[in-house]
Design a protein around this nucleic acid. Structure first.
Length: 459
RNA sequence: GCGCCGGUGCCCGAGCGGCCCAAGGGAACGGCCUGCAAAGCCGUACAGUCGCGGGUUCAAAUCCCGCCCGGCGCUCCA
C-alpha cells in the first residue's frame, strides 16, 4: 500500500484512489517566460518520480501539468522585448521542454493544458461563484469571499484571523476588496495588456482559477493527487482549494509539496537571482544530468537541500559506480533477459518507496544490490544475472539510466589501440602496453581489464 | 511578529521509541585481485554528547518542555 504525506491533513496516509488502479495526478507546471532553473527541475522531477513509481507498481497514471502562458511576467517580457505574449510563451516553453524532457529525461505529462486555451472554462467557473454568492465583482475585477470558505487556511494551519494579520501587516490593503484576504478571480483589463471578454468586462483570469478550471476539467471532480513546490501552498493552492469548495466541487483528495532548493543557504529563486539554470549545469559536465537525478533521489523530496559543485561531483562518482557495474556485466556477457529479479532487493525497494516516496533508502537498496552484483560477477556466481537485472530494473523505476553516458562500441580507432595494448601485454611488453594506455588516457579513454578481456569507456 | 520545517561522521544524507555501538553515496586508509594500474571485493578509521539543557520511559537520534542556530511561508515564486 502506497502512503504519502498529505499537506492538508499534515500526516502520512494511504493514497486512496477515486478509481481503483488509476491515479489522477495534477502537478503545477511552469510559467514560461525565462530559463528554467534547478528549482524547477526539482519540482518536475518530484512528480516524475511519483509517476514512474506508481506506474512501476502497476497503476495507470493520468499525469497533467499546466502551462501558464499568460501572467505579469510574460506581459512584462513581451513589452520589454517589443514582442507579444504568445511569442514569449512559445519561445520559453520550448526552452523548458528541451531542458526538462529531452535533457533531464522527465516523462512528458499526458496532458498539458494552456491557460489561454481555458479562458472560457474559467469564466464559466467564476460565473458559478458569482451566482452562488461566493464572489463579487467591482471595477477592478471579481473577487472570492474567503470568509465563506470553511477551513480556508487548512493547508497552512492558520485561522482567518491569523492570515488577516499577516495580510494587513505585509501588503497594502486593496480598498476594492471586502476583506483583505479576498483574492482576484478575474482582473479587469489594463491598457496595453491582453484581455478576454467576460460578463464583468474585458480582463484576464487570476492565477489560481487557471489550475482549478483545468484540473477539474481534465481529471474530473475528486481527482487523486495535486502537487507543487512548498512555496505554492499559500496562496496558490490554498486559493485553488477555496475556489473549488466555494463552487461546491470536490477537489484534490491528496496534496503533496516538494521542498525548496537552497544555494548558499538561501532559497534558489528568480526573485533573489541566485539560481543556476538547468542548461548551465548540463554544460558543466556530461554526467550532470544523471548525477542531478541521483542527487535529488538521495535526499527526501520534503527536505530542503543544497546544491553546489561539491555535491554534484559526489553524485557523479556514484553514477560512475553504476556504470562500472554495467561495463563489468556487459564484459561478462550475461543474459539478463530471463533473469528473475532478486526478491529481497525488490521487497526492500518497494517498502522504502511505499513509505512516502522513500527514495534515499530505495537508492541505498540499489547500491547494496550493486555491491552484491559485483561480488557475484567477480566470483562467477550464477546469481549474477539476477542481481544485475535487479539493479537495472529498480534504477529504471526511478528513471536512472545506467551505462548510457556514451556509446563505447563502434570506434575502430580506439578499438585498435586497445587491441594493440592487449597484444603487447600478451607479449609481456609492458612498456609498450603502458604507453598505449597513456595514449588512450590522453584521449580521455579509460581501459579496465576484466577476466573477459579489456573494456573501455570515456572518462 | 505569527505559522511550518530542519540541525546526524571529513562531506552529502537515511533513520523518527527497542532490529542503531546509526543505511547508502562521496572522500580517506589497509588487504585481496592486477605485470603495474583501473574497476571490483573484503576490511578499517571516522557519529560513542545524533545542536544545547532538562524531562517521560524498562528502553530515545527517535516522544515532551525550554533554549540556540538555519531555512521556508505570510498574496512574484517550483
Amino acid at each position: 500500500m502506497i502512503r504519502l504525506y498529505d499537506t492538508l491533513s499534515g500526516e502520512i496516509r494511504p493514497l486512496e484512489l477515486r478509481d481503483p488502479g488509476k491515479v489522477s495526478l495534477y502537478a503545477c507546471g511552469p510559467t514560461v517566460y525565462d530559463h528554467p532553473h534547478l528549482g524547477h527541475a526539482r519540482q518536475a522531477f518530484t512528480y516524475d518520480i511519483v509517476r514512474r513509481y506508481l506506474e512501476w507498481s502497476g497503476l495507470e497514471v493520468h499525469h497533467v501539468a499546466n502551462v501558464t502562458d499568460i501572467d505579469d511576467n510574460i506581459i512584462n517580457r513581451a513589452n520589454r522585448e517589443g514582442s507579444t505574449e504568445p511569442e514569449v510563451a512559445k519561445v520559453w516553453k520550448a526552452v523548458y521542454d528541451k531542458a526538462i524532457f529531452d535533457d533531464l529525461g522527465m516523462l512528458r505529462p499526458h496532458d498539458r493544458p494552456h491557460a489561454t486555451e481555458y479562458v472560457q472554462e474559467m469564466v464559466d467557473f467564476i460565473q458559478t461563484l458569482v451566482d452562488n454568492g461566493s464572489a463579487y465583482a467591482n471595477d477592478s475585477g471579481v473577487y472570492l469571499r474567503v470568509h465563506a470558505v470553511e477551513d480556508y487556511g487548512g493547508q497552512v494551519h492558520r485561522t482567518l484571523d491569523d492570515l488577516r494579520e499577516g495580510a494587513g501587516a505585509r501588503v497594502e490593503v486593496d480598498g476594492n476588496k471586502e476583506d483583505p484576504l479576498d483574492f482576484a478571480l478575474w482582473k479587469a483589463a489594463k491598457p496595453g495588456e491582453p484581455s478576454w471578454p467576460s460578463p464583468w468586462g474585458d480582463g484576464r483570469p487570476g492565477w489560481h482559477i487557471e489550475c482549478v478550471a483545468m484540473s477539474l476539467d481534465v481529471l474530473g471532480d475528486g481527482f487523486d493527487l495535486h502537487g507543487g513546490g512548498t512555496d505554492l501552498v499559500f496562496p496558490h493552492h490554498t486559493n485553488e482549494r477555496a475556489e473549488a469548495i466555494a463552487a461546491g466541487r470536490e477537489f484534490a483528495r491528496h496534496w503533496m509539496h516538494n521542498a525548496m532548493l537552497n544555494i548558499g543557504g538561501e532559497k534558489m529563486s528568480k526573485s533573489l537571482g541566485n539560481f543556476t539554470t538547468i542548461q548551465a549545469l548540463l554544460d558543466e559536465h556530461p554526467l550532470n544530468g544523471r548525477a542531478l537525478r541521483l542527487l535529488l533521489l538521495q535526499t527526501h523530496y520534503r527536505k530542503t537541500m543544497e546544491i553546489n559543485a561539491d555535491v554534484m561531483a559526489q553524485a557523479r562518482g556514484a553514477i560512475e559506480r553504476l556504470d562500472a557495474m554495467a561495463r563489468k556485466a556487459d564484459g561478462a556477457g550475461l543474459d539478463l533477459a530471463d533473469a528473475p529479479l532478486d526478491d529481497a532487493a525488490v521487497a526492500a525497494f518497494r517498502e522504502a518507496m511505499d513509505d512516502d516516496m522513500g527514495t534515499p533508502e530505495a537508492v541505498a537498496t540499489i547500491f547494496e544490490t550493486v555491491r552484491r552484483a559485483n561480488a557475484a560477477l567477480d566470483a562467477e556466481d550464477p546469481a549474477a544475472p539476477s542481481l544485475v537485472a535487479t539493479v537495472f530494473d529498480l534504477a529504471g523505476a526511478l528513471g536512472i539510466a545506467i551505462g548510457t553516458a556514451e556509446e563505447a562500441d563502434g570506434d575502430d580507432e580506439i578499438d585498435g589501440l586497445v587491441a594493440a595494448r592487449t597484444a603487447a601485454r600478451e607479449a609481456k611488453d609492458f612498456a609498450e602496453a603502458d604507453r598505449l594506455r597513456d595514449e588512450l588516457m590522453a584521449r580521455g579513454i579509460v581501459v579496465e581489464d576484466t577476466p573477459n578481456g579489456p573494456v573501455w569507456h570515456r572518462a
